[in-house]
């Protein structure tokens, strides 16, 4: 190959590149889309996990929504009050006091407390249990299945299977709500971080049935309902539930419960 050949090749490739670069540069200016500066700043302030706990497609989608004023500044459940304060500063709004929340699994039927009706050897996934007899191999058909669909859903390593049931690590939980959606038994509820007393059962079966299937199931005796002075405990469908808004953490219901269902 001659020198001219090399020269020609360089000129052609370089020239094409240069022309295309100029072309792109020109149209880059012409088609420039203005981006709200605040949106970029908000995005930096958000945690960046893209967990979707806020209900938007990800952190960038939420940042855009906050920038447009469609979402409140404390919409990120993961970042909590700290993020809301930074975002509030960017948006020029005062952040309200947002309450830290945590997930709670309403079941305490661990391996000692309840027994299995049969051994299950299928796919180790909670969703698959819809296809097995009784929709659970445990005696209690409403309890935690223990195959960890919630564990897989959690982005923060905050929920684990311990002794056959899912347990939330409150310190790690960011209240994004992914586990709530993942649980086919709808056992997980969002409660305030400082809540002390919860009903750790989701069985709506009658008292006698619960007695037979689990040592620590709620039988719907209504003792807790009667003893609560604030009207925070209600029993519906043979199952007690504590309204955390009204609860004052007095612990009377815990004392009264004959089945030790209330933690």
């Amino acid at each position: 190959m001659s020198i001219t050949g090399i020269f020609l090749a360089t000129v052609i490739v370089g020239g094409t590149g240069l022309l295309l670069g100029l072309f792109l540069g020109f149209f880059g200016k012409k088609f420039y889309v203005e981006v709200d500066e605040r949106v970029e700043q908000i995005q930096e302030a958000l945690p960046g996990n893209n967990c979707g706990g806020c209900g938007y497609a990800g952190c960038s989608a939420l940042a855009e929504a906050i920038g447009k004023g469609e979402a409140p500044i404390d919409a990120c459940p993961v970042g909590g009050a700290a993020t809301a304060a930074i975002v509030g500063k960017i948006m020029g709004k005062e952040a309200g006091v947002s309450k830290r929340m945590t997930a709670f699994v309403k079941c305490a039927g661990s391996c000692e407390k309840t027994s299995v009706e049969y051994e299950y050897y299928g796919i180790q996934d909670c969703a698959m249990m819809n296809f097995v007899p009784g929709q659970s191999s445990k005696k209690c058909k409403d309890g935690c299945l223990g195959y960890g669909s919630c564990v897989q859903a959690c982005l923060f390593d905050a929920i684990h299977i311990q002794n056959g049931i899912a347990v939330v690590d409150r310190e790690k939980c960011k209240a994004c709500g992914k586990c709530i959606a993942a649980c086919p038994k709808h056992l997980i509820e969002m409660i305030p971080y400082d809540a002390k007393h919860m009903v750790a059962c989701s069985s709506k079966a009658k008292g006698k049935q619960v007695m037979a299937s689990c040592e620590t199931g709620c039988i719907g005796c209504k003792k807790c309902e009667k003893v609560c002075e604030k009207g925070a405990v209600t029993v519906k469908d043979n199952l007690a539930w504590i309204d955390q808004e009204k609860c004052v953490n007095c612990g009377a219901c815990k004392e009264a419960c004959p089945r030790k269902v209330i933690l």
Binding site: A9, I12, V13, T16, L20, L24, F27, G28, F31
Partner: peptide, 23 residues
């Protein structure tokens, strides 16, 4: 030189299409 020039063109074109659609 076709391969290298074509790649240049395609890369630039995709960039351009992206900008164009964004606007």
């Amino acid at each position: 030189l076709q391969t290298i020039v074509f790649i240049l063109v395609i890369a630039a074109l995709v960039q351009f299409v992206e900008m164009f659609l964004k606007k």
